[in-house]
Amino acid sequence: MDKELNVLKQETLNAIGKLADNKKLNELYLDIFGQSGKFTNLTKKLKTLSASEKPQIGRLLNEVKKELETAFEKHKSIIRNFKLAEWIDVTASGSGPSTGHLHIVSQAIAEITEIFERIGFTRMRYPEIDWDWYSFESLNMPVNHPARDDFETFFIDLPSNPKLGKVVLSPHTSSGQVREMERVKKPPIRMINIAKCYRPNWDISHTPMFHQFEGLVIDKNINITHLKGTFDYFAKEFFGKERKIRLRPFHFQFTEPSFEVDITCGICSGRGCRFCKDGWLELGGSGMVHPNVLRAGNIDPDVYTGYAFGWGVERTYMMKQGLKIDDLRLLYSNDIRFLEQF
């Protein structure tokens, strides 16, 4: 009989745990302790036992009764106080925080900064409104040089400085190169300069304000393989590890040699498609820092060499995302229907 009692106890405890409302719990209680309840019936059997068994089983009956009654009471309180039976519609909308949106240019800048900081670059920022000296002259681009055609420029209506020239809206982040050399004084330099730039073009694929990120590395023994290695690292981190880069000869006044940097197209994986040029997309310009630029920054080109690059933030980010924004001017239109998509 002690076996039967133990089975009843275990079954009852299990049953209690599964019930979620009071009515069912009362029914179970009657089923156990009612007039012809399971426990009551077992109690009735006590009489039929021998005198030697009686005291032991009697004690067991009391223990089990007490234990079950406590379990019933406890579960009743869980149902009542902790609302075990309460139902909600879990498919209804949540009411958590509504998050806003970072502009895609901010998102791009954050990603680019992080990648370059991992390989020891420090992000700097230099004036957007700067002297001609920093924007052109110190970059080996004298006033009448045809290379300046590529950098059509906004000027600020302010008097020129006799030494530093006119006040310009910097057309590229390269204006920070000589400023960084002046700040650091003695290499090594590993700088990434991300800033607004301005050029007088305004159409479907140009905005008069845009962003560039400029890298500048100067140290002893810097050579073309380091420039290639850095671009390869950036391309793999930013665009994906299967992407490759290549250099093509180009010409910039402030670098020698100069390169145009291409990356394999992400859409066709370099096989060639209508979004790319034979499998390649142009990332931007770069080169080994021209000795005249190092001299302008008071760095001895016989001791130090370096490389530099300046690429468009908007362009690079759109290439990554495969975003086909049909009109670049949308980026700065501040239409909430555009901003909320990112």
Partner: peptide, 12 residues
């Protein structure tokens, strides 16, 4: 951004 504000970028 995480407090629910949306960032704008205007021309300078």
């Amino acid at each position: 951004k995480y407090w629910g504000y949306t960032e704008t970028y205007h021309y300078s």
